[in-house]
């Protein structure tokens, strides 16, 4: 397991999401879809619970009518340090990288779907059919992200292609990565700046600072999965 506070050579990627700032606008959902070439399954398949959203806004209602409040929570792969999805894969299609990412190797996946069944956050998505993009969406495909075929599992990568670019840039400039080097699509698209991304092993980074906040919590911490996504509680709940 990668320790967050440990001094490692490699950056330890993490995300912080301020629930107080999230308006549930779903800009992140759209940005993620375009950035990561996520297949469009269409309305019929979507009605059969087969839509793919690497990040989604979960809506929970609180209270009785007319005093109803809606809580939003963007949920994406939590990149657990002790991920339940990893050991159950028989072919190492999902494993843990040295940067603390929960990696998914599409070409290695045979499609047992065991990982999705063992994910407490339900953030793994299966390609039930070959991917499709109704015109003109196929023109917007990102050349830096591979297309997944049918029969394989996929999920949020923390925009691994952008992480690699940021790391290369830092290496070219002969320095450690710093805030702003890597901005995943969802983070960059958030109009209220509710999302932060960075190296949590660097105690000066924004994510590390937010992780120390008294509002910081992680989803289902009691399961011992040690997620790398930190949620900042709404102040009225703090």
């Amino acid at each position: 397991m990668m320790n967050e506070t440990e001094k490692t050579q490699k950056p330890q990627w993490a995300m912080a999401i301020d629930l107080d700032r999230c308006t549930g606008c779903e800009a992140c959902v759209v940005a993620c879809r375009i950035e990561n070439n996520i297949a469009v399954v269409g309305p019929e398949e979507s009605a059969r619970d087969r839509s793919m959203n690497w990040i989604r806004i979960e809506r929970y209602m609180e209270g009785e009518f007319p005093d109803v409040r809606v809580r939003f929570r963007p949920v994406l792969c939590q990149h657990c340090q002790e991920a339940p999805c990893e050991p159950v894969c028989p072919v190492y299609a999902t494993y843990h990288t040295e940067e603390g990412l929960n990696a998914q190797v599409y070409n290695r996946c045979v499609g047992t779907r065991y990982c999705a069944n063992n994910c407490p956050y339900s953030v793994r998505f299966f390609n039930f059919f070959d991917p499709q993009w109704p015109a003109p969406l196929e023109k917007s495909l990102n050349p830096e992200v591979s297309i997944r075929t049918r029969g394989v599992m996929e999920k949020c990568t923390f925009c691994i292609q952008r992480i690699r670019k940021g790391e290369e840039k830092a290496r070219d400039e002969d320095r450690a990565v710093r805030d702003g080097d890597v901005i995943p699509a969802c983070v960059g698209s958030c109009p209220t700046k509710a999302m932060y991304f960075g190296n949590i092993a660097d105690s000066n980074s924004e994510v590390a600072r937010l992780a120390r906040s008294n509002r910081a919590e992680r989803l289902m911490e009691d399961l011992g999965t040690e997620p790398r996504v930190i949620y900042l509680r709404k102040r009225d709940q703090a």
């Binding site: 050991p87 894969c89 028989p90 072919v91 045979v110 047992t112 029969g151 599992m153």
Partner: peptide, 29 residues
């Protein structure tokens, strides 16, 4: 039940050209 049933033999542990072994920690193995 596999998503890609044509590659079921990837679960079989034998030295192969892919250079991969299955994950013996998985209950499926």
């Amino acid at each position: 039940h596999l998503g890609r049933p044509w590659v079921f033999y990837w679960l079989v542990p034998y030295p192969n050209e892919r250079g991969l072994w299955p994950n013996f920690r998985s209950p499926l193995i």
